[in-house]
Nucleic acid binder design. Structure first.
Lengths: 253, 253
DNA sequence: TAAATCTGTCCGATAATACCGGATGGGCAG
DNA sequence: CTGCCCATCCGGTATTATCGGACAGATTTA
């Protein structure tokens, strides 16, 4: 990972600070962005106008919001990804079979990216959306991915992004995490017991090719349904089987 | 629309030229970007490194590609849009009912943005993806939207983006387009007879609220299935009914 | 209703940097 | 093994991003 202390084009960094601020504020004017980022009002306005002319943000009567052009760039990027194209129909089937949420995640820049999700008939409302990025250690899919990274790479990720906790169940100790990753490798799948969202449980399996981890898939549902035999073996069986189908399709197509 | 000749932060514009070049080239190194954009190699490299540090592009052994972080920004933007949340279940139902592709489009910066699509059981493979942007006049949904814009706004959009043709059926004459828009207003829906994709036909209806057009929905399918009674009245009925449900839900929720 | 305050937008001076030429080392082709 | 191309790096300088302050409109307060 590159040293982020010497970014070559600082103006682009400021523009993206503005984009991130818009995402955090939902919609805002130049004064609000200025206050939020601690930059002068006219600087904020310069960047907003630039982003608007690039069609990246929308100005509605002096209020700005994030535009859909990001979806264009991101949607295209995703569409080019082989794992996405191969996994999508299988994720849908998995959602149908289990009735729950089924997801696909990849790692990028040391973060977990929700690339695709399908909803089964009983799926509860979740906060995730395509593109949603999380700390890897906070999700079963993320841990399934980390479990197959070299330890050096895992440590670099933890150094770069830290280990914030999001519920009281989130693992916050590096050694505990490494022990858990070893267990995941041994049993072949990962579990999330309310570690990212209180009340939600998850089973995830890595997508492997030649010992390289390409991503992970999962099924998630409320703790009330994800327990007992279903959570212990039924759901893991579905997930592992689907992961294997995806692995085979990644190799032979 | 703002004057695009005086962009306040030119470095951000160059960065986005690089992002657009990456999308066009799929993946590229600094030299290829340099050739493509006509800028010095070290300038291209400066911007690529900046975008990489912002986690917007991925460097794989000196080859760069668009990252999924754009999906994060765009996915979040979309998730905040009321019309998306209200329309999504209805678009799904429409796809189930008709067996074809069903789509939702909004206008942004004078372009049509495919915000959501659902695939019915018989849906053919299409080139669209969430976030895909098109010239409004090239699609039925786009024409349904333009039909409910003031003429001045329509002319401004045509001035800004032009009227390129994408198939031999695409309307390329402004007066013809305005005649067609008047007809769309009178019959309440629009048709696309192979105007954007050869072999594909489409029926679209606007989503209106207090005479303001919020977006449009459509059903599209191959010309072989989209003909006769089905194309003349059955599919239009489905589309208009769904549009009306969305309009009601936009008003009362 | 009027005054005060806040905000969006604009513009020009200057401090800061984006631009980019050229160097270096690695990979690949012949 | 040699030549060519590419990725990456770095420092000088031409260019611009930054930002203070002005102005007009909108909103809030008295």
């Amino acid at each position: 990972m590159t040293d982020s202390t010497t970014i070559p084009v600082k103006a682009t960094r400021v523009s993206f600070d503005v984009v991130e601020a818009l995402q955090e504020l939902d919609e805002a004017g130049a004064a609000e962005i200025s206050n939020h980022l601690g930059i002068p009002k006219s600087t904020a306005h310069d960047h907003l106008r630039t982003l608007e002319q690039l069609e990246l943000v929308v100005n509605e009567n002096g209020r700005y919001r994030t535009g859909t052009r990001f979806l264009d760039f991101g949607g295209y990027a995703r569409q080019q990804m082989k794992i996405y194209n191969v996994a999508r129909p299988e994720i849908r089937k998995l959602a149908e079979q289990t009735g729950e949420h089924s997801n696909l995640m990849v790692e990028e820049h040391g973060r977990g990216v929700f690339l695709y999700k399908a909803e089964g008939t009983n799926a509860v409302q979740l906060d995730t959306y395509n593109g949603y990025r999380v700390h890897l250690h906070t999700t079963a899919m993320g841990k399934a991915i980390l479990a197959h990274f070299p330890e050096k790479r895992v440590r670099a990720i933890l150094d770069r992004h830290g280990m914030p906790t999001v519920t009281e169940h989130t693992v916050d100790n590096e050694e505990e995490l490494f022990e858990e990753l070893a267990q995941i490798r041994s049993q072949g799948f990962a579990r999330d017991l309310e570690e990212r969202v209180r009340g939600m449980r998850c089973v995830a399996a890595p997508i492997l090719r030649d010992d390289e981890v390409l991503g992970a898939i999962s099924v998630s549902g409320p703790a009330s349904r994800m327990q007992g035999e279903r959570f212990e073996s039924e759901i893991p069986d579905h997930v592992l089987r689907t992961a294997n189908v995806i692995e085979v399709n990644m190799t032979y197509s």
